[in-house]
Amino acid sequence: MRRFRLASALLATSLLALGGAAVPAAVFAAAPTLTTPYPSVMVSPGSSTSFDLTLTTTTAELMTLSVSSVPTGWTTSLTGNGTVVDSVYTNPSKPPALSLAVTVPADAAAGSQDVTVTATGPSGTARLPLRVRVQTASSGGAALTTSFPKLSGTPTDTFSFSLSLANNSSQKQTFSLQGQGPDGWKVTVSPSGNTQALTDSIDAGSTDTLTASVTPPSNATAGTYPVTVTAAAGSLTAKVDLQVTITGSPSLSISTPNQVLNATVTSGGTGTVSVIVTNTGSSPLTSVSLTSTPPSGWTVTFAPSSIATLQPAAASTVTATIHPGDNALAGDYDLTITATAGTATGNIDIRTTVQTSPLWGFVGIAIIVIVLIGLAWVFRRYGRR
Results as ranks from 00 to 15, higher is better:
S292N: 09
I254T: 05
L372M: 12
F148K: 08
L100M: 14
V277M: 10
A231I: 04
S66W: 04
R127F: 01
T75E: 14
L128M: 12
V117Y: 14
V132K: 09
T13Y: 02
A31F: 02
R2Y: 03
P191V: 08
V132M: 07
L10N: 03
D157T: 02
A126I: 12
N91T: 02
L198Q: 12
T54D: 02
T174S: 07
Q173G: 00
I370K: 07
W185S: 07
G46D: 04
P304N: 03
T72W: 13
L78E: 12
T36W: 11
S190Y: 12
L10R: 13
P191H: 06
T293Y: 01
A344T: 06
I373Y: 08
T90Y: 15
N219I: 04
L11E: 02
S93T: 10
A315N: 09
G141V: 12
T340C: 04
A9Y: 12
L16G: 14
T195E: 09
N219C: 09
T209D: 15
S123I: 10
L372K: 09
P191D: 12
P216F: 03
G80W: 11
S170A: 15
G19K: 10
L65E: 00
V378D: 05
N279D: 10
D183L: 04
S283K: 14
A376W: 09
T158I: 04
A106V: 05
G342E: 05
S305K: 06
T286E: 05
V115I: 14
A101R: 07
M63C: 04
G297D: 02
V84I: 02
A232T: 15
V214F: 05
L34S: 08
I337L: 15
S251G: 00
S296C: 04
Q178R: 11
S287L: 12
P257L: 04
A320I: 06
P96Y: 05
V354L: 00
V371S: 11
A231G: 03
T340M: 12
G73F: 09
P92Q: 06
V134W: 03
T266H: 04
A315W: 06
S316N: 14
T245N: 09
L335E: 00
T120Q: 13
N168K: 15
A197N: 09
D200T: 15
P324W: 07
G331L: 00
T343C: 01
L375K: 07
P122T: 15
G205H: 15
S164M: 15
G325R: 06
K150N: 14
G19M: 11
L10Q: 03
T286D: 08
T59L: 09
T36I: 13
V115Q: 02
S66M: 00
S164D: 11
S274F: 03
T207Y: 08
S69E: 13
A97Q: 06
V84Y: 05
G80S: 13
P149R: 11
S164K: 12
S77C: 05
A212Q: 06
A31Y: 02
S316R: 07
Y38E: 14
T154K: 13
N168L: 14
T146F: 01
L335N: 00
A220S: 10
A313E: 03
I368H: 00
P32T: 06
T33V: 08
T299A: 11
T264M: 08
S123Y: 02
I370R: 06
T195C: 01
A119T: 10
S50W: 06
G141W: 07
L6H: 08
T64M: 13
S255M: 00
A7S: 03
S99N: 09
G82E: 08
S170D: 09
L100Y: 04
A7T: 03
P250Y: 05
S253H: 03
